[in-house]
Simulated scan of single mutants.
Amino acid sequence: MAKVRGAGATIRRLLKGLLIGLLIVGLVGPVVVVGVYRFVPPPLTWLMVQRVFEGRGFDRRWVPLERISPTLTRAVIAAEDARFCEHHGFDFEAMRKAFAANQRGGKVRGGSTISQQTAKNVFLWPHRDYVRKGLEAWFTVLIEAMWGKPRIMEVYLNSIEWGPGVYGAEAAARKNFGVPAAQLKPAQAARLAAILPKPLSWKAGRPGPYVKRRSGAINANARVVRREGLSACVLRSSVS
C-alpha cells in the first residue's frame, strides 16, 4: 500500500509540474513573441499558409507605416474601428450594439476592433471558436500594452487579406491600382477599405455597385476622421 500511495503522490507531483509548466509557457510564450514582433515584421500567418495550400498564391510586401498613404489609415479607421484611438483594444459599446443587432436577427454584425483583428490575424487561426476568442483577448491586451497604436496599425495594414493571395497595403495597392501604397488617393483607399469584409469576393479595382456605394460612404467618413482627429494616435497630424 505504501508503494501505491508513493506512486500516486509521484504522479500527482508530475501532473502538477506539467500543469505549471504549461501555464508558464502559455503566459510567457505569447509575451516573448509579441515582444519580438514589436520590432520584427511578423512572417507568415495561419491564414496565409491556409490560402497557399488552397492554391491562391502569395503576394506580400512589407512597408513601414510612413510609406502607406494616410488616406488608407483614415479609411480603415472609418470602415472598421472609428474609436481605434480612444479604446484600449476593446470597444464595449460596439460589442453591445453588435450583440443587440444580432439578437434581432438578420445580418450578423461583428464588434471586433482593429486591435482584435490584428491579434487574430497575426497570432491565431481563422476559424471562430471559444478557445481562439479567449486567446485573441489575451493577445489584444499584450499588443496594446507592448506595441502601441502606430505599431498595431502598421502590422494590421501589412498583414490583412486584400484579395486571393494578396496581403498588406503595398501588394493591394499595386495589384488593384498599379501604384505603391504611399500614392493611394482617397477614393482608392476607400475602395480598399470597403472590400475588407469580403476580400475574396469583392473587388477594389473593379468594384460592383455595392462596393461603389460602400466606398463612397467610407470616403465621406474618412474625411470626418481627418477633421475630428480620430486618427491622431497613428498619424502625426490629423490633417496629414
Score class of each variant (00 low, 15 high):
D59S: 14
P30F: 04
F139A: 02
A98R: 08
G163W: 02
V32L: 15
L196V: 15
P30W: 04
A182L: 12
V49M: 13
R214N: 03
R83T: 13
R109D: 13
L200V: 12
G29W: 11
V108Y: 07
T140K: 04
F123T: 02
Q117K: 07
H88G: 12
N102M: 00
A217F: 10
L124N: 07
G6N: 14
N221L: 15
R132T: 08
G205C: 04
N221T: 13
T71Q: 15
A172N: 01
V25T: 07
R51V: 01
R214E: 08
W62E: 10
W147S: 06
P30Q: 01
F39A: 08
G55T: 11
K149D: 07
L200S: 13
E170M: 00
A173C: 10
A7I: 11
L192A: 02
P41I: 06
S231P: 03
W138F: 15
G134L: 14
F123R: 07
E86M: 13
V108G: 07
C233F: 07
G178Q: 10
A98P: 12
G106F: 04
R236F: 11
M1P: 09
D91S: 07
I11D: 01
A173H: 11
Y130N: 10
S69H: 04
K16I: 11
Y210L: 13
R109I: 11
S215Y: 01
S215V: 04
P64W: 04
Q50V: 14
L22K: 08
K175G: 03
N102D: 13
G29S: 00
G168D: 08
W147M: 04
R12Y: 11
R128M: 12
G8L: 14
M146G: 06
K97R: 15
V34T: 05
T71W: 13
P64D: 04
A220F: 11
R206G: 05
N158R: 03
G178I: 03
C85M: 09
A190E: 02
F92M: 14
K133E: 10
R236M: 11
I152P: 05
V211Y: 02
E86C: 03
Y156I: 00
M95F: 15
L14I: 13
L184N: 06
A137V: 12
Q188T: 06
V179I: 08
G168L: 03
T140V: 02
H88N: 14
I160E: 00
S201V: 15
H87I: 04
A75D: 10
I24F: 01
R214S: 05
G163L: 05
G57H: 09
T45A: 13
A204L: 01
L184W: 03
I218A: 08
V4C: 02
R67H: 14
I77K: 02
L184S: 03
N121A: 12
L44R: 09
E161A: 02
G29D: 07
K16T: 14
L22E: 10
I152G: 00
A169Q: 03
D91V: 00
S231Q: 10
S112L: 00
P150F: 02
S215D: 07
G208S: 14
K107T: 15
R174F: 06
V141H: 07
R38M: 11
Q50K: 15
E170A: 02
N102H: 09
G163Y: 00
S238Y: 01
R227P: 04
R60T: 12
R213T: 14
M1E: 12
I20V: 15
A100Y: 13
T118C: 01
L22Q: 09
G55C: 01
S231H: 03
L124P: 05
P199C: 11
A119L: 07
